[in-house]
Design a binder for these strands. Structure first.
Lengths: 243, 243
DNA sequence: TCCCTATCTTTACATCGTAAAGATCAGATA
DNA sequence: TATCTGATCTTTACGATGTAAAGATAGGGA
């Protein structure tokens, strides 16, 4: 889109494989793996390399810049190479999102482990949630942009499911209840939905720059993290109908 | 993307303007507005027609299907016609989002006006918020997908600003305070952020199908609206740290 | 009457996703 | 050891998209 900036792509032979095929013999001739092959025809671990390249592209150029061809360029292979490993763009993006969910879960678990005081234990998870999103805005945006993902992929389904389970358990712990996997009371469901909606909504609005107006009007120097904490801990409940 | 389904587009002359130019005289010849012109060369109100076409395309085929060419097809004009009115895709999409914000605000205002009991007055706005998103998922998704919008456009900036102002005022009313435009206490900011995050997060999760797991585990027949209400009214505050 | 200008259409081009066919190579099989 | 097979990667090709630029067509004033 938008005319793109550079990248001619007319340059064939993605990786300079040191072939230096001088003559243009139409016959394949099977050039016998010329002694100093810089990079072999077979990459060896292209799948992982592509996923890492994709993450770099995503965080560098944003969601719109995450294309199959850009990832292939970043990895130094031909533009059709990713297809073999991921089927299509949705496949690549879904695998990347699965990685994101695993990073995300790991961040929250380790934040919980590090918490010591009761207040820290209460805030560790939401703070880690927002912190991950701020540190990896591209990844977070990808993970919650359903239209580009394929949740029927086991890796993605599992990873996002684990994310939800962790949340539900944390809420259960707050309510000193064992949240059974199969049934919820309305109160339990409301508690889970409230916590998740609040943190997810805050994060989304923050990343979209929609909280800037609020932050600017707060006492000078107030950070998003402080706003989050105030939002989560303040017990002042509005008493009258709005509108 | 995805190979598309149909639409040949090889059919030139978007609208059948009844020209029936039999001979192929290379010279323009200025065919004198043949008596029964079905649709004139100049549409007359193409800008509005394009915006309406865009909304139809958006709700019918989703965000990914909302392309300049698809909108032009829907409106029956050449694929480059929208460019003249909106500059580029971002322009069209931003104007459409502005319309969305205006519809959205109107829906909340009228819901507030219709509320009578105190409980209704408290819930009218959030319920209208979610209801709009459910009725116009494409529009809602568009409005909060920042990466495709250009907030420097006055119409969009104003409309979304009005949306925020309405929210802030509603929170102010709940707290029986006058929320001054330029400064906020941390408590006030937290109250606004909490309300907005909660409702926006709930809506986003709901539209992305991520609350399905919760809804299925609630007492049989519980609707999203009931969950929202429980989420907003329940005063049971979690008492212990989580993790 | 003539021409200017906004509006709309054509044409063109770079990029994208994806399919299909060819090239390359590692390892099994004989 | 020589050959074959299948996985991996590259080429080539096609339709779709956004956007720029040039041509065609009126509507409305000079």
């Amino acid at each position: 889109m938008t005319k793109s900036e550079i990248k001619s792509e007319t340059a064939h032979s993605p990786r300079n494989r040191g072939t230096t095929s001088s003559s243009a013999s139409a016959r394949p001739a099977r050039r016998a793996a010329s002694a100093k092959t810089e990079t072999p025809y077979h990459h060896g671990a292209l799948r992982e390399a592509l996923l890492q390249a994709a993450e770099r592209v995503l965080e560098r150029e944003g969601l719109a810049g995450l294309t199959l061809r850009a990832v292939a360029r970043e990895a130094g292979v031909s533009h059709a190479a990713p297809t073999h490993h991921f089927g299509d763009l949705t496949g690549l993006v879904s695998e990347l999102a699965a990685i994101g969910f695993r990073q995300f879960n790991a961040a929250m678990v380790s934040a919980c482990d590090a918490a010591t005081t009761p207040l820290e234990r209460t805030l560790a998870r939401p703070k880690a949630y927002v912190a991950y999103a701020q540190a990896h805005p591209g990844m977070y945006g990808l993970m919650f942009r359903t239209e580009r993902l394929d949740y029927s992929r086991p890796s993605l389904h599992e990873a996002s499911e684990a994310s939800f389970a962790g949340l539900a358990n944390a809420i259960g712990a707050m309510r000193q209840e064992q949240i059974s996997g199969d049934a919820l009371t309305l109160d339990q469901g409301a508690a889970i939905a409230r916590a998740w909606s609040m943190v997810h909504g805050f994060t989304t609005l923050l990343l979209d720059g929609r909280l800037k107006d609020i932050l600017e009007r707060l006492p000078k120097g107030t950070t998003a993290e402080q706003l989050l904490q105030a939002m989560l801990t303040s017990t002042v409940v509005p008493k009258l109908p709005g509108c």
